[in-house]
């Protein structure tokens, strides 16, 4: 390893990681674009422009053309992006908010807590997630809120397992014994002593979870079981391409949402890797570093 100046803070290390920073920049630009550009352009996603007609090709007025009933596709792309991004973020927040406490409890209290929480997570993980999500969404109705709830409440198992495994190690540490001997209550120990030591991997995986939720939502909407007209999401916009004429003759309809979707997910993966390296600078090296120092 070359002798470089070692950054002390995680943020300092993250800032030096060129790939992660590039991903962060691209994602921020995309957020600005999706959330501010519609306001600047004053775009209307649900108004049919009868003059432009149906399936108009890109023009000065409609940069990405119009859809099957004359709605501006750029406006739908941007508003759809807002929905896709918000669904992904909120679903990941919900899974984390459910998964972390359950993992902590299972790992710290063991016994029947451990048994039931882990069996519940086995149960959820036995179902192919697409299938369970589809079933539940079709039962409760496909609105954006329901999709967020279903994705969020089914996505906690991975996080819970991560936290659980780390809690098992942390609870055996001597400092936990020390605070217990000092008379700290269980809740205090979990919150102040265990949680800070198990939460790092949750941060690393968080961006990826957002990405996964965005992908699940878009698959659902692409297949017509998620976000529906008049609302839009990137998945439901790509759905236009299941029409063969659109697929072959009008790539401007389905390529932009597809590209934005993939760019978002790639950036989220890059940011997740960056956070991982920043929180644990040796993680990358340790595998080349043989047993005898």
């Amino acid at each position: 390893m070359g002798e470089r100046q070692v950054e002390r803070t995680p943020w300092g290390r993250f800032r030096r990681d060129r790939r992660a920073m590039a991903c962060l920049m691209v994602l921020c630009m995309e957020l600005l674009l999706v959330f501010l550009l519609p306001l600047v352009l004053g775009a209307e996603p649900n108004v049919s422009d009868l003059e432009a007609g149906f399936w108009a090709p890109p023009s000065a007025e409609h940069w990405l053309g119009t859809d099957d009933v004359g709605r501006d596709l750029l406006a739908r792309l941007l508003y759809g992006g807002q929905i896709s991004l918000l669904i992904g973020l909120s679903a990941a927040v919900i899974s984390t908010a459910v998964g972390v406490p359950l993992g902590l409890l299972a790992g710290y209290r063991r016994g029947s807590w451990e048994f039931w929480i882990m069996r519940l997570s086995d149960l959820v993980q036995t179902f192919p997630s697409v299938v369970l999500v589809l079933c539940l969404v079709s039962l409760v109705g496909a609105s954006a809120l329901n999709i967020v709830l279903v994705l969020g409440l089914l996505g906690w198992t991975g996080i819970a397992r991560l936290v659980y495994a780390n809690t098992l190690t942390v609870r055996e540490q001597e400092y936990i014994l020390a605070v217990r001997a000092l008379g700290a209550g269980r809740a205090t120990i979990l919150w102040r002593n265990v949680l800070p030591n198990v939460v790092a991997p949750v941060w690393c995986s968080f961006p990826m979870r957002v990405g996964r939720a965005i992908l699940s939502e878009s698959s659902l909407s692409f297949l017509g079981f998620g976000i529906r007209i008049p609302q839009a999401s990137w998945g439901s916009l790509i759905q236009y391409a299941s029409n063969l004429t659109v697929l072959t003759r009008r790539p401007w309809v389905w390529l932009p949402p597809g590209i934005l979707l993939m760019v978002t997910v790639f950036c989220l993966v890059g940011i997740g890797d960056g956070i991982r390296d920043a929180l644990d600078p040796r993680a990358n090296r340790v595998i080349y570093h043989h047993k005898n120092p």
Binding site: G211, L215, S218, S219, F222, L223, G235, I238, A241, S242, L247, W254, G258, L261, M262, V265, F266, V269
Partner: peptide, 11 residues
């Protein structure tokens, strides 16, 4: 495999 959704690969 992670970043490109299956339905987009199909398309």
């Amino acid at each position: 495999s992670f970043g490109v959704p299956g339905f987009f690969l199909c398309l």
